[in-house]
C-alpha cells in the first residue's frame, strides 16, 4: 500500500513539475493556462495523498474552478489566441534574468544541501481539524476581516467599473 502511494506521489509530483515547466515555456497563453490547470490538479492529488481531502477539494474549487475560469475569460476577451512574438531588443534583460535565475538556483541548492531534512511530524490534516483551527477564537479576527476585505473589493470594483451616473 505504501509503495502504491509512493508511486502515485512521484507520478503526480513529476506531472506537476512537468506541466509547470510547460506553462512557463509555452508561448501561447491558452496552452499555458491549460498547463497550469494540469499543475493544479496534480497538486490537488498530492494534497489528497497526504490525507487532506479538504485542501485537495479547495485546490480544485478555487484554483481549477474559479481562477482558471477567470484566466480563460480574460484570454478570450482579449482574443490572445496567437503566439506572442518574442521581443527582440530585450536580449540583454534576458541574459541578466538568466544569470540572476542561475544565481538563485545555486543559492537554493547550497541551502538545501546544507539542511539535514527531518521526517515531518505526522499531523491531522482532516477537514474536521481544519475546521477546529479555522473557527477557533484565534481566527475570529481573520474570519471577520476577510468579509470586510471581500465587501471592500466588491465596492471598489463596482466604483471603478460602472458607467458614470
Amino acid at each position: 500500500m505504501e509503495l502504491f502511494e509512493a508511486i502515485l506521489f512521484y507520478v503526480f509530483a513529476g506531472l506537476s513539475l512537468l506541466s509547470a515547466v510547460v506553462m512557463v515555456a509555452q508561448r501561447n497563453p491558452l496552452y499555458s493556462a491549460f498547463a497550469l490547470l494540469v499543475t493544479i490538479c496534480s497538486l490537488s492529488a498530492i494534497f489528497g495523498l497526504l490525507g487532506s481531502p479538504f485542501i485537495a477539494a479547495l485546490q480544485i474549487v478555487v484554483y481549477a474552478g474559479a481562477i482558471m475560469v477567470l484566466f480563460l475569460f480574460v484570454l478570450m476577451l482579449l482574443r490572445v489566441g496567437r503566439e506572442e512574438p518574442e521581443p527582440g531588443r530585450q536580449r540583454v534583460l534576458k541574459t541578466v534574468a538568466i544569470g540572476l535565475g542561475a544565481l538563485l538556483l545555486a543559492q537554493l541548492g547550497a541551502v538545501i544541501a546544507g539542511i539535514r531534512p527531518q521526517v515531518a511530524r505526522g499531523f491531522d490534516a482532516s477537514t474536521r481539524s481544519m475546521a477546529r483551527v479555522l473557527f477557533s477564537p484565534q481566527y475570529v479576527y481573520v474570519f471577520e476581516a476577510t468579509s470586510i476585505l471581500i465587501v471592500g473589493a466588491l465596492v471598489g470594483a463596482v466604483v471603478l467599473a460602472r458607467k458614470e451616473p
Partner: peptide, 18 residues
C-alpha cells in the same frame, strides 16, 4: 499574528487601490 496582519494589510490596500 502574521496571517491576521496580512489580511489587515489587504483590507487596507484593496480599498486604497480603488
Amino acid at each position: 499574528e502574521l496571517v491576521s496582519l496580512f489580511v489587515s494589510l489587504e483590507v487596507m490596500s484593496v480599498a486604497l487601490y480603488a
